[in-house]
Design a protein around this nucleic acid. Structure first.
Lengths: 106, 106
DNA sequence: CAGGATCCTTTCTGATACTG
DNA sequence: CAGTATCAGAAAGGATCCTG
């Protein structure tokens, strides 16, 4: 296994939650498990393809869990893993900061 | 002035510090003002062009200040603005999380 | 419902050369 | 030193169609 070198630790964080969608997805999952279609509704700008892709990456980075109910029609639920939970504080603060910025806009 | 609508406040945050470079740049500026060339040295993967572009955007979003010393050769210093300072907690936590992740890697 | 596959467009990034 | 300008390639994103 190759050990990646980072000049500064935030790079390791950005590798996991960086990009256009990941923090947003995680922010929605903060409130509990969600189905694929619920995520889609909550983030109308994202396409299925992108959502699938981002969820796969988050899963393989160990940030979220994926539960598949083997039924027809299929049902898949996503939720924060323990590692994902450890991001909660950051996500909360990012949300709070954004809220503040929106309200203080002139 | 158009008021942008966000489905969830973190979008406003991501608009400002999202992307590949911005959080990283801000993380470096946490420790104090830096010159353009110092930033370049600290973030060797970024090109001049990208650095310039990202700094311009951060400036126009009111996150950083840009001081130009009118001398030859030129000298330009960047630092967190007050608004930028309000991101410090988030940046610190992102760094801490990354550090943790690096150390807990098997 | 939750996707996978394909094709296509757009945006982002980087390399290089040049400038006040 | 701190940029700009130009060009080309890579990556991201979207539309559409298909499937268990």
């Amino acid at each position: 296994m190759e050990r990646i070198h980072y000049n500064i630790p935030i790079e390791a964080t950005l590798e996991v939650i960086g990009g256009k969608w990941k923090a947003l997805i995680l922010c929605h999952l903060k409130s509990g498990k969600m189905r694929f279609s619920e995520l889609q509704k909550s983030i109308p700008q994202i396409t299925k393809k992108m959502l699938t892709q981002q969820l796969r990456e988050l899963e393989s980075d160990g940030i979220i869990n994926r539960y598949v109910y083997h039924q027809i029609p299929p049902k898949v639920e996503y939720s924060l893993s323990d590692t994902g939970e450890s991001l909660r504080e950051i996500l909360d603060k990012m949300c709070a900061w954004g809220e503040n910025r929106i309200n203080n806009q002139t």
